[in-house]
Structures are given as structure tokens and as C-alpha cells.
Write a protein that binds this DNA or RNA. Structure first.
Lengths: 330, 330
DNA sequence: TTGTAAGCGTTATCAT
DNA sequence: ATGATAACGCTTACAA
């Protein structure tokens, strides 16, 4: 590989002048600039990033931590991050944390060792307290995280409004008896708290009171969904529509309905959360709450790039809107 | 960040000795080795990769080019590559080529600029002729590519046997009239040629003659599949089973069958290719040929690492077995 | 067994 | 406007 010295020799100038040209600095005569450019082209010269890095330059690389490449959710997110980074001249180093705290930390060391300028964490494995020390080596932004910590830059979705839209849709399509799945009813923090607020708001606005028997806690899987439908159908007074809080649970309900011969949405309207790929292939197709991962990816990359550019990190959490996708299950 | 000099001072030794410890070299007394290790720990010392790189060391980074992160196929492949690389102490830099020749080349420059030690290309955008020059900067391996070029290291699937298994399965389940989709019938090269060979072999072994009317060319999309089923049902003498060559086409057939009230597999047995996620969610679930992307990813990563280790590149193409996944559409 | 010193390719400082 | 030189942190001859 040609070095800056080779270029300098060929152009009959000094390394310094060549460096000035490379970095678009002033104080180079047009004449010499052309000469250098010419020599660079002829030698197919590319500055050695290792050398630049050693001099304390940016690496133009952003690290990205995702839990898994095969989860379509994170695939979209990663795709958007990579795309945005590339458009801004940045490369990405992407790592699957695969649920390993250790791997996460090991990857964060890229920051310490100046192999990445900044980091995007899309599913934090460790406590923020263990991540925080790395911020002194470069900006870090968290995606889709719902923690208290005010000193953490976070990009999140509007969980509250997402839920609100879902419940409101059920109400508007004629349902007054609405089942509601939530991780934790009296959550003091996190996603669930925000979702519960949206739920309460929609119910209150419609003048509907909340029936505790129709609130279901800790349902996450398709299996949970199957049992849930059976359970609901066994109730004397049962909901006519259910907000599942997850496409997986909704898929289980649809499956079980098929098994039991229950008509969706006539006998039970179902609304998912997440807009997983199968929401479009299920029978009937699933109405769900969509969270635009592409926007989140763009924002995250932009955030890091802006921080790098400006030299400091904006702490305000950034909230992206959720949308409702109305299909055939409601 | 602590440097090697800091460690040396703290241990009361020279940079050289510290370096020896870092690199597990001989000729360091146990005593001093312990001292250095201690100092390294105390200072939370990590060698600066930029400096090492500048000295001509490996980057311990493998570049990976995929067409898209969101395609489940390539997601599995990438996941396996990353995992294998990580287990061997390598990081990965992954780029979506997104069908852009330019982006592919730009990413390959990582090799030239010593930011990656080797490259895995999972869907080549440019001609090999344009890629080949990069091999002088590090090993390159191609995945799932079916080109002639003997000088290219390639990891591929056994297309012929995959097809053979599919056709054989149709025959074994009682079908003698078998439709066959292919990209090009008389292909001189590439995937299609190999698949056609498997098709012919299975037919010949069963003593079945090939009916040209049941061979369909250039069918790729679900839309193609819908039309194909209609077309077949219109035939006087029609196949009772169809090898589609693609899950997409198979999905279209299933969809159209549903629309037309045609029973699968009773009236038409369908076999896909690829084992896409929806093969498991379709109605009925799709019998298909699966190509284990995880194995391919592992192999690809291992290939690069071995090449890096041994210093030279093995040219023999590596062929992975395809498998048949029997579900409900046959 | 240990240490000294040169050099990897850049950029920044300081002269000129 | 241009150039000489030191420095970034590390590894490796070569010396001791």
C-alpha cells in the first residue's frame, strides 16, 4: 500500500502538504493541491486508518449491540442504523449480545480501545451502572429502554399512545367489554406503566369503567394466548375484545380460536402489539400496534453522529410515535 | 487510557517485557510476569489496537457483506458468522450491500485499509473480476455462489441433491406426474444446472420420463405461483405434484388453492425451496428443501479464520448438504 | 532474562 | 504557502 510519503515524493512535495490536501486544509496552492490529488489517484492511495487512529482521530465507526440478528424487529432496527450510518460516512460494527452480559461488556470495550466512536445499545443486558463508565470514551444511546435514570440518552416509542390507539380502536368498533393484558398492573416504571396509562386514558375518555376480572397479568407467549382465550370463553361475563400487549399472545389466541371454532373478530376482537411479520400472514390478519423500527434506527444513528459532531451528548429522551395497523382481527 | 509505558513503569520494568507478557512470549521470569499482570489489572490496561495494527498486526476483525439484514435467510447466516467469529476472538464488521455495487466495493476497501483481516461475501454484486484484486489484501470467501471460476473459494449448498430429495419425495408419496419449476432449463452453469441434474436423476431412477409440458421456466414470485396453479388446473393432463424451486412460488400456489378451493395436497402436492419462515405458518404447512444457513455461516467464518491462521487460502469449494423438511403440503 | 531503540503512517507544532 | 520534526502506542531486532 502506498503511504503518504510515496504520494509526497511523487508529487515532489512534503508529507505535510499532502496531509493538508487529504484533510482539506487551507494554505495549499491550487497548483500543488492538484499535483497531490493526481499523485494520490495514480498510486491508489488511501490513508491508513490505524495511523490516523493512533493520532487520535475518529474511527468513523459506530458500534451496535443487538440481542439477535434473526429477530425481525432488531433486523429492521439494525438495517436502519447501518443505512443511516453509511449515508453519513460511518461504518458499523455490529454484535449480537445474545443475552450475555459478558459479551455486551466485551463489545463495549471497542469504545475504550478506540475502535468505535460511539455505541448504540438496542437491548441492554447489564445495569446502566455497569455501562455508564464507558460513556467517558464516547457517546452511548439506548434504544427502546424504559428506565428512570435521567442521565441516560434514550430513544423510545410512545407506549402510552400506542396502547391508547388500540383501546380506542376497540371502543370505536363497538366494544365496551375490553380485556387487557399487561406485564404488571401497578408498575411503577417501564413500558407497562406507560401502557397502563394509555389504557386508562382511553377507557376514561369513553366513560368505561375498568373491570378487574378482564385484566390479565403476565401473558407473553402464544401458549399463554391459547389458554387466555379458553379462559375468557369460560367466563360468564366476558370481554368481546382483547388488547393482548403482544403479537405472540394474539397469535396464540387466533390459533386457539381456530381450534375451538370461535370466529374472530365476531366473537372476539383481537389486537396485538409489535406488528411482527406473521401478523400479516395469520388468519385472520392481525390488527396490531406498530412501532416504526426504521425511525428508531435512523434516530439512534443520527443521535450518535450528532453527539460526535457537537462533542456533547443530549440527554433528552426522544420519543417516537406508535401507530395502529388495522387488519382483519378487529 | 493507560499505555504500555504506564504498565512498565508501575511494574518497574521495560515496555519490552510488558509486551512480552501481553503476547505470551517466552523469556520472562514468572516473577516479572506476575508483576506485569498485576500492573495491567490495576491500571485496567488494554493494548491500543490502532497501534498494534500500525505495527502490522491482525485486526482480529472479519468483514461481512450481506445484501440485507431483514431477509431471514441472511439474518441466520450473519448470526452464525458473528457467533463463530466471536467464539474465535474475532469481531465482525457487517455491511448491507443493498444491491449496490458501489457499496460493496467501498466496503471491500476495509481489507485494503487493514480494518478487516478477511471478508465474507454472501451475495456478490460485482463481477469476480472486480473483487479478485482485493484478495491480495486478505482472504475472501463467497457464500452460496455458483460460478465457474476455479480460483474462487466458495461455500455452497448441494443444489442437486436438494432437488433430488424433493422430487424423490414426491415420487415416494405416489406421484408420477410431477411439475418442475426451474430458472433455466438448459442452464450451462449456476444453481439451475445443478438442480436440473438432481431432477433428472430422481426421475430417471424412478423410470419416469420427463414431460416438457410440465416444466415451467422463470417462476419466482408468489404472483407467478398463483398463475401457475391456475395454469396447471386448466391443463387436460396435469401434474399431481409440483416442485416449485422457491417457497415464494409455493406460497402463491397455496394462496391460489385456497382461493380456488383446491385441496392441498390431495389435488396438488406442493414442495417449496428454502424453508422461509412462512413455510411453517402457511395453510397447510409447506414441505420444502432446507439449506442450513447456520452451517454455512460457521463454515464461512471458519474458512476465513483458518486461512488467516495458515497464511494461505484453500480453493476447494465446500459443499453443504441440503435437507428436506416434510410438512403438510405433500 | 531484560532493555534500548527504531519504525509502522499519520497529523500537529513550530519554523521558515 | 511549505516543510522538518515530534508524537501517538506498540512490537521487534539487536544489545547487553
Amino acid at each position: 500500500m502506498a503511504t503518504i510519503l510515496d504520494v509526497a515524493k511523487r508529487a515532489g512535495l512534503s508529507k505535510t502538504t499532502v496531509s493538508r490536501v487529504i484533510n482539506n486544509q487551507d494554505y495549499v496552492s491550487e497548483e500543488n493541491r492538484a499535483l497531490v490529488l493526481q499523485a494520490m489517484k495514480e498510486l491508489d492511495y488511501h490513508p491508513n486508518p490505524a495511523a490516523r487512529r493512533l493520532r487520535g482521530q475518529l474511527t468513523m465507526t459506530i458500534g451496535v449491540l443487538v440481542p439477535s440478528f434473526t429477530d425481525p424487529f432488531f433486523a429492521s432496527l439494525t438495517a436502519a442504523i447501518e443505512q443511516t450510518a453509511y449515508e453519513n460516512g460511518y461504518k458499523t460494527m455490529i454484535c449480537q449480545s445474545s443475552g450475555s452480559k459478558e459479551k455486551e461488556i466485551s463489545f463495549l470495550n471497542l469504545l475504550k480501545t478506540k475502535q468505535a466512536d460511539g455505541m448504540i445499545i438496542t437491548a441492554m443486558e447489564n445495569d446502566w451502572n455497569d455501562i455508564q463508565p464507558f460513556t467517558k470514551h464516547g457517546p452511548i444511546v439506548l434504544c427502546d429502554e424504559y428506565i428512570q435514570e435521567p442521565s441516560v440518552p434514550v430513544i423510545k416509542f410512545d407506549q402510552s399512545n400506542g396502547t391508547y390507539l388500540g383501546i380506542q380502536h376497540l371502543i370505536q368498533t363497538g366494544h365496551h367489554k375490553i380485556g387487557y393484558c399487561t406485564g404488571a398492573l401497578f408498575a411503577e416504571r417501564g413500558k407497562d406503566k406507560e401502557r397502563n396509562q394509555g389504557y386508562q386514558k382511553a377507557m376514561a375518555e369513553a366513560g368505561l369503567s375498568i373491570n378487574p376480572a378482564w385484566i390479565f397479568v403476565d401473558r407473553y407467549t402464544a401458549e399463554d394466548g391459547k389458554q387466555l382465550l379458553t379462559h375468557m370463553m369460560d367466563m360468564e361475563d366476558r370481554p368481546t375484545g382483547i388488547f393482548t400487549g403482544s403479537d405472540e399472545v394474539a397469535a396464540g389466541i387466533l390459533e386457539q380460536a381456530n381450534e375451538l371454532g370461535i370466529r374472530i373478530p365476531e366473537e372476539m376482537a383481537v389486537i396485538g402489539f409489535g406488528d411482527r411479520p406473521f401478523a400479516e400472514w395469520s388468519h385472520p390478519k392481525l390488527t396490531t400496534i406498530r412501532q416504526p423500527m426504521e425511525s428508531m434506527g435512523q434516530k439512534a444513528a443520527q443521535f450518535i453522529i450528532d453527539s460526535l459532531h457537537s462533542g456533547d451528548v443530549i440527554m433528552d429522551p426522544y420519543e417516537l410515535p406508535s401507530e395502529i395497523i388495522i387488519r382483519k382481527s378487529t
